[in-house]
């Protein structure tokens, strides 16, 4: 099963046993994507934790 990243439009390969709420990283842009719905398949950006770069 494949999908398109809603952030960068890159291809994403998905497991057959995908579950709602699962977090999937996009291999191209690194976005953390949340499975909002399996049928129909809907992916959205997962809430981000702000990184602390110590700067």
């Amino acid at each position: 099963m494949t999908a398109v990243c809603p952030e960068c439009e890159g291809p994403i390969r998905l497991a057959e046993d995908l579950m709602e709420g699962e977090i999937i990283p996009c291999g191209d842009c690194g976005a953390e994507l949340e499975v909002l719905s399996v049928t129909p398949l809907k992916l959205g950006l997962a809430p981000e934790v702000q990184e602390d770069w110590g700067e």
Binding site: D28, C29, G30, A31, E32
Partner: peptide, 11 residues
């Protein structure tokens, strides 16, 4: 290679 990520040290 395209390197453009939202997070991480090597974004």
């Amino acid at each position: 290679r395209i390197v453009h990520e939202r997070t991480g040290l090597y974004r």
